[in-house]
Design a protein around this nucleic acid. Structure first.
Length: 136
DNA sequence: AAGGGAACCAACCGCTATCTA
DNA sequence: ATAGATAGCGGTTGGTTCCCT
C-alpha cells in the first residue's frame, strides 16, 4: 500500500510486481526465451534488474506452475527428500513438478522445520517423527 | 478493540558455477 | 586459455496478514 512512488526514471524498481510488469515480462520472454536476462531487462523498458526478471519468471509466471497449497503427498515427499539431501532445494524441487525451489524452501521453513525442531527438543515421541518422516 | 508478536511468502542478496566470445 | 557475462543456488529480509490476549 505505502506507495507514493515518486521514483526517478532511471532507478530500478523493487518489491512486488505489478500486473502490467508481469505482462510485459511474459511478452519479452516470448521474444528472448528464458535467457539473457540482463539484456531482456534493459530492452523491455521494465525498471527491473535482469536477476529480478528471471526470478519472477521462474517462480511465478512460468507456465505449468502449481500455485495452490502443497498436498499431503507433496509434504511427505519434501520431508523425505530434505532428510535425504539436506537443504538442496533445487534438487528437491526437481522431484515435485510445478513447484519451485523457493516455494519448497519457504514451505519447509514455515511449516515443517518446526516439527523436526520440536522433535529435537524431545517434545515429541519418536514414533511421531517416524510417522512424519518415513511415510512410504 | 487493539496492538503486538508470529507466521507467511515474494523478493533480495551474496556468492559460486557455468557459459561464451 | 581466460575474462567477463550469465545462470543458478540457498540464506535472509521486509512487508503484509493472521492470530492471540
Amino acid at each position: 500500500m505505502a506507495s507514493q512512488l515518486t521514483m526517478q526514471e532511471e532507478e530500478l524498481r523493487r518489491g512486488q510486481w505489478l500486473e502490467e510488469e508481469d505482462e510485459r515480462l511474459s511478452m519479452m520472454v516470448g521474444v528472448f526465451g528464458e535467457r539473457r536476462w540482463d539484456a531482456l531487462a534493459k530492452t523491455s523498458g521494465l525498471k527491473r534488474s535482469g536477476k529480478s526478471c528471471r526470478l519472477r519468471w521462474l517462480n511465478y509466471l512460468r507456465p505449468n506452475l502449481k500455485h495452490g497449497h502443497i498436498t499431503a503427498d507433496e509434504e511427505r515427499l519434501i520431508i523425505r527428500l530434505q532428510k535425504q539431501f539436506g537443504n538442496k532445494w533445487s534438487k528437491i524441487a526437481k522431484q515435485l513438478p510445478g513447484r519451485t525451489d523457493n516455494e519448497i524452501k519457504n514451505y519447509w521453513r514455515s511449516h515443517l522445520r518446526k516439527k523436526t525442531l520440536i522433535y529435537k527438543q524431545g517434545l515429541l515421541e519418536n514414533t511421531l517423527l517416524v510417522d512424519i518422516v518415513s511415510v512410504p
